[in-house]
Design a protein around this nucleic acid. Structure first.
Length: 554
RNA sequence: GCGCCUGUAGCUCAGUGGGAUAGAGCAACGGACUUCUAAUCCGUAGGUCGCAGGUUCGAAUCCUGCCAGGCGCGCCA
C-alpha cells in the first residue's frame, strides 16, 4: 500500500520535471511514512520539503503543485492535504484497504515474503561455541538471533545457509583433554592437582566416568601425548553431541557443521596464507609470521604463525573466511558475542587484504545476557563452571518463551532475563499474549466449522461489510507487515518482527472483545472471518520467522 | 590510557536511511466475564529522551566534548 502511494508521487514528480518546475535528472529521494497521528493521514511524505530548495519555491507551494500533478486511480484516495511546513498527507478511501485481505489470501500463507534478496547467497554463521562445555544462555541468544535472521533472509528471497564453526583444534582441546584425564584419575582415587586453567564444570566429571567405562583405567602421573589427544577428542566429541542436541531441541537446524580440522587437512590454511603472501600482507619478524592488519586500519599487526611454528587461532579464521567467499557467498554474516568485538577490525582487514569488498562481511555482536531470578542476578563465572546452561533455561521456561525474550531486544543492547518472570504464564510474559491471539482465532475457526459456516473468497462485495474503526485499524496494520519483514531483513533486526506481532495481537484482542465474529448475519460473519484469517495468517508467518510455535489451543 | 556497545516513564525496552503533540509492556490506581478462550479488554497517572554545545526549516535520531554502566585491548581461543 505504501509502495502504491510512493509510485503515485514519483509519477507526479516526472510530470513536474517535464513542466520544468523542478530540475530534471534523477528523482530526489523522499520518504513516505505512516504518521503517528491519524489527523496526518494514512501516509505522509516529505517530498515537497526535499524538493523545495531546487525548485526555489516555498515547500507548501511545491506541495500544492505536486498535489495538482497526482493522478490516482479512482476510488483510491479520499483526500490529500498539505500541512505543517509542507508535508503532503494522503487519506485513503476505506475500501482501498480491503485489497490487503485479497493480497494475503493470494499469497497462501506467504504474505510477507518478498523477492528483495533474489539471487543473493548468504551465509549466517552463529553459535559456533567451542566444544569445551555446554551451551549457556548467551549462546542461546545467539542461536535465537541467528536462526530468526536466517528465516527472515530466506523469506525475503535470499538463498541462506546456516553454519556452525567448530573450534576443535589447538590448546583448548589439550586443556580439555587434561581436565578430563585428571578427573578420571580422581575417580580412580589418585590424588591430583587440577590444572589451573582447566575446565572445572561438573560435566567434566561425568565425561570422565564415561571415558573410564569406554577406555578402561588411566595411568598415574602425567599423560603421554597420545592419551592426552584421546581424552581431548573423547570430551570434544561428547560435548559437541550434547550441543547438537541442545540446538535441535531449541529448534535450530544447521546446514553445515564445519570443523576447524578441515582447514588443516584440506590445506585451506596454506592456500589462504599464500593468497595474503602474494598480496604482500605477510612478513616475518621476531621469528614469527605477521599479518599487516595496520594497512587496513587495525591498531596493530597480528601474528599468524608463532615462533614455535604453530599457527594461531587467527590464522584459522583467515582461512575460514577465505573459504567462505570461495564458496560463493555474496554476503557473510558472523554472529559473535560482544566480548569478541576487539577482533572485528582485524577480520575486516583480512577480508580487504583478500581483495573482497568489506561490506560483504557483517559481524553482528550480541551483547550479553544477565540472568536474574526474582530480580536478583544469578552468579555466572565461565571457567569456574557455575553458569546457567541453555538446557536449564529451556527446561525451566520453555523454548518459545526463551526465544521470544531473546528476540525482544536489539542485539546490541544488553538483555536482562528474569527466570521467574519468564516462567509466569501471565501478561508479564509477552509471548503468551501473541500466542493466545493465534489460539483464540483457531478456536473461532473450529466453532465456525462446527456451525458449518460457508467460506467465502475475499471478494469486494463481502468485504465492504467491514467498516468498524477496529477493522480499519487492523487492515492498516496488516498492510504494513511486508514492510516490517523487509526492514528486519535489511537491518538484520529480527526484534522488529517481535514488536510487530505484539502490536497485531493487541489489535486482535481489542477487536475480539468489542465485536462478535460469528453472528446471524452470514455476510458479515464471512467478512469478519476473512479479516481474522488474515490476522492469523500473519501471526503464524511472523511466529514462524522467530521460531516460536503458533498454537491451536492454549 | 585507547577502542566498541549502551544511557528514553518507577522497571524492562521500542522509536522505521532527521520529521509534525516521544510510544509499548509490566508495576500502580479505577472499571469490564450469562458471550466466539478473561493468558483478554477499557480508562487514569507517569518522561528536562544522561549533560553541554553544534549542524538546519526541523534532532531522541547526525557531529564534537563531557559524565555513567557494560565489554574488550595476548605469539589464548
Amino acid at each position: 500500500m505504501r509502495k502504491r502511494v510512493a509510485d503515485l508521487i514519483s509519477a507526479a514528480l516526472l510530470v513536474l520535471q517535464k513542466n520544468g518546475v523542478i530540475a530534471t535528472g534523477d528523482l530526489p529521494i523522499f520518504q513516505v511514512d505512516i504518521p503517528k497521528i491519524p489527523e496526518h493521514g494514512d501516509f505522509a511524505t516529505n517530498v515537497a520539503l526535499v524538493v523545495a530548495k531546487s525548485a526555489r519555491q516555498a515547500p507548501r507551494q511545491v506541495a500544492a503543485l505536486i498535489r495538482e500533478a497526482l493522478n490516482p486511480p479512482p476510488g483510491m484516495l479520499a483526500r490529500v492535504d498539505i500541512a505543517g511546513p509542507g508535508f503532503i498527507n494522503f487519506f485513503l478511501e476505506d475500501s482501498s484497504w480491503l485489497q490487503v485481505l485479497a493480497d494475503i489470501e493470494a499469497a497462501q500463507g506467504k504474505y510477507g515474503d518478498s523477492t528483495m534478496g533474489a539471487g543473493k547467497k548468504v551465509q549466517v554463521e552463529f553459535v559456533s561455541a567451542n566444544p569445551t562445555g555446554p551451551l549457556h544462555v548467551g549462546h542461546g541468544r545467539g542461536a535465537a538471533l541467528g536462526d530468526a535472521l536466517a528465516n527472515i533472509l530466506a523469506a525475503t528471497g535470499h538463498q541462506v545457509e546456516r553454519e556452525y564453526y567448530i573450534n576443535d583444534v589447538g590448546l583448548q582441546m589439550q586443556t580439555l583433554g587434561l581436565s578430563l584425564f585428571r578427573r578420571a584419575q580422581e575417580l580412580q582415587g589418585l590424588s591430583v592437582t587440577f590444572p589451573e586453567h582447566g575446565y572445572q564444570g561438573d560435566y567434566i566429571k561425568t565425561l570422565a566416568q564415561h571415558y573410564l567405562a569406554a577406555h578402561g583405567p588411566v595411568p598415574a602421573g602425567d599423560p603421554d601425548s597420545q592419551t592426552l589427544e584421546r581424552c581431548g577428542r573423547f570430551a570434544g566429541e561428547a560435548i559437541l553431541a550434547e550441543i547438537q542436541q541442545d540446538l535441535a531441541d531449541f529448534g535450530v537446524q544447521f546446514d553445515h557443521w564445519y570443523s576447524e580440522t578441515r582447514l588443516f587437512q584440506e590445506q585451506i590454511l596454506d592456500k589462504a596464507l599464500a593468497t595474503l603472501q602474494d598480496q604482500g600482507y605477510l612478513y616475518e619478524a621476531d621469528g614469527a609470521l605477521w599479518f599487516r592488519a595496520t594497512a587496513f586500519g587495525d591498531e596493530k599487526d597480528r601474528v599468524v604463525r608463532r615462533q614455535t611454528g604453530v599457527t594461531t587461532y587467527f590464522a584459522s579464521d583467515i582461512a575460514y573466511h577465505w573459504l567462505k567467499f570461495q564458496r560463493g557467498f555474496d554476503q557473510v554474516i558472523d554472529i559473535w558475542g560482544a566480548d569478541h568485538h576487539g577482533y572485528v577490525p582485524r577480520l575486516q582487514a583480512v577480508v580487504q587484504a583478500l581483495g573482497i569488498a568489506p561490506e560483504r562481511l557483517t559481524v553482528l555482536l550480541v551483547q550479553l545476557v544477565s540472568l536474574l531470578r526474582e530480580g536478583q542476578p544469578v552468579a555466572m563465572t565461565t571457567r569456574g563452571g557455575t553458569f546457567v546452561t541453555l538446557r536449564q533455561v529451556m527446561d525451566e521456561v520453555g523454548k518459545d518463551v526463551a526465544r521470544f525474550i531473546f528476540l525482544s531486544r536489539r542485539a546490541d543492547a544488553q538483555l536482562e532475563f528474569d527466570l521467574e518472570v519468564a516462567k509466569k504464564q501471565t501478561s508479564e510474559n509477552p509471548v503468551y499474549y501473541v500466542q493466545y491471539a493465534h489460539a483464540r482465532l483457531a478456536s473461532v475457526f473450529r466453532l465456525a466449522a462446527e456451525r458449518g459456516i460457508a467460506w467465502q473468497e475475499a471478494d469486494r462485495a463481502v468485504l465492504t461489510r467491514l467498516s468498524q474503526p477496529e477493522e480499519m485499524a487492523i487492515l492498516k496494520v496488516l498492510a504494513g507487515y511486508p514492510d516490517v519483514v523487509a526492514a528486519a531483513a535489511r537491518h538484520l533486526e529480527p526484534h522488529r518482527i517481535t514488536y510487530y506481532l505484539t502490536e497485531l495481537a493487541k489489535e486482535l484482542h481489542a477487536y475480539y472483545y468489542k465485536h462478535r465474529f460469528l453472528s446471524d448475519d452470514l455476510e458479515l460473519t464471512q467478512a469478519r472471518l476473512l479479516l481474522v484469517r488474515g490476522i492469523q495468517s500473519v501471526l503464524d508467518h511472523g511466529l514462524r520467522l522467530l521460531g516460536v510455535e503458533a498454537p491451536e489451543t492454549m
